[in-house]
Nucleic acid binder design. Structure first.
Lengths: 183, 183
DNA sequence: ATGGGCATGTAACGAGTTACATGATTTT
DNA sequence: AAAATCATGTAACTCGTTACATGCCCAT
């Protein structure tokens, strides 16, 4: 039996702190993780949950709610915990994938104006600032909880990376501007 | 008419230095770009080239070769150049996507042993070292050519990012080891 | 009353990967 | 003699997104 894609383990992992969650809640959590592991679309999460349930790694319990549609709350099973541990220890993490559209466009910079490139970099820097703001919020949110040492460690890691990316992007901007004046 | 996915523009962009290339050559170039924009599988490149040809953005010319199978060499058309410029200036670059399997696993660190986590980080660091080595090679390769200022600028950018990631990953390692001793 | 949040799901599509198939040339 | 490189392509599949569909609750 082949290992499921990483996305499945992301979902499984979120249930591994023994806090049962609905698909909706999982989606929100996953969104906070997008800075280091791009999160799946909402519709996919429900699919993954069904697949995990088929394998017996999670169980669903219907929770009737007054008024609102029934909530399906998922919990991890012992088999699920075992599978998560196996994945962590045995499956290779694989190379880190980056898709930086701004860098790609800069690579083809000869095909546009320097002004466009400067704008692109400014937009990228604005995006980084926004992300940095959000990591601060996430960090606060995590520190309220107990037993989230690893998540806050990772958010700290993200923070360092984002800061470094910002300083690198600024250097690119400076280089571009220097190049503009010298010609 | 909707814009094609970014991957198409990656292929189109590679032809925009007016150096006609075969699918095979494009694949090799694209591989060098994977540090900032994950490159598509070989089979996809041929598909993209056909799609670009259908739109009249590239043209194929059959080059017969002694012995070897015929080479199909692609060139960008004026319409293709125009479309690339349009894409650069008008289409939003979109958020940067990162998929860092090591960070994801560390996030779920409670479900495994500290030893596994240390190993994972060591492997990640080894991967970073390898990537750094390769950027040096790519940089050398680019500096030999004229008119590759933008590509070498981007490789410089990648270099800065990789170095920053390495130092961040080392900090995570140190934190983990510190945590191990205090408990 | 309007919009946003909670809550779940399906259908259709498009993107992208893996594996297969072929075959000559060049390097080790 | 074997392995790597050059060279192209198809078929099957899986992953993942977008858009749609539904409907209640709560705040403004």
């Amino acid at each position: 039996m082949k290992s499921l894609p990483t996305t499945s383990y992301l979902v499984l992992g979120l249930l591994s702190w023994d806090r049962p969650m609905s698909g909706y809640e999982i989606r929100k959590w996953a969104e906070q993780m997008r800075f280091f592991y791009w999160s799946p679309a909402q519709s996919q999460i429900y699919g993954e949950l069904n697949r995990l349930a088929e394998r017996g790694w999670v169980t669903a319990s219907e929770v009737a709610q007054d008024g609102r549609p029934d909530k399906r709350v998922f919990s991890i099973t012992p088999a699920g915990q075992a599978e998560l541990s196996r994945w962590l220890a045995e499956d290779p993490a694989g190379p880190t994938i980056v898709k930086n559209g701004t860098a790609l466009k800069l690579y083809f910079g000869h095909a546009t104006t320097p002004e466009t490139l400067l704008r692109l970099l400014h937009e990228h820097l604005a995006e980084l600032d926004e992300m940095l703001g959000q990591t601060a919020i996430v960090q606060e949110f995590l520190e309220a909880d107990e037993g989230t040492i690893y998540p806050s460690l990772v958010v700290e890691w993200v923070y360092l990376q984002l800061e470094a990316e910002r300083s690198a992007a600024r250097q690119m901007l400076a280089r571009l501007q220097a190049g503009l004046q010298s010609t």
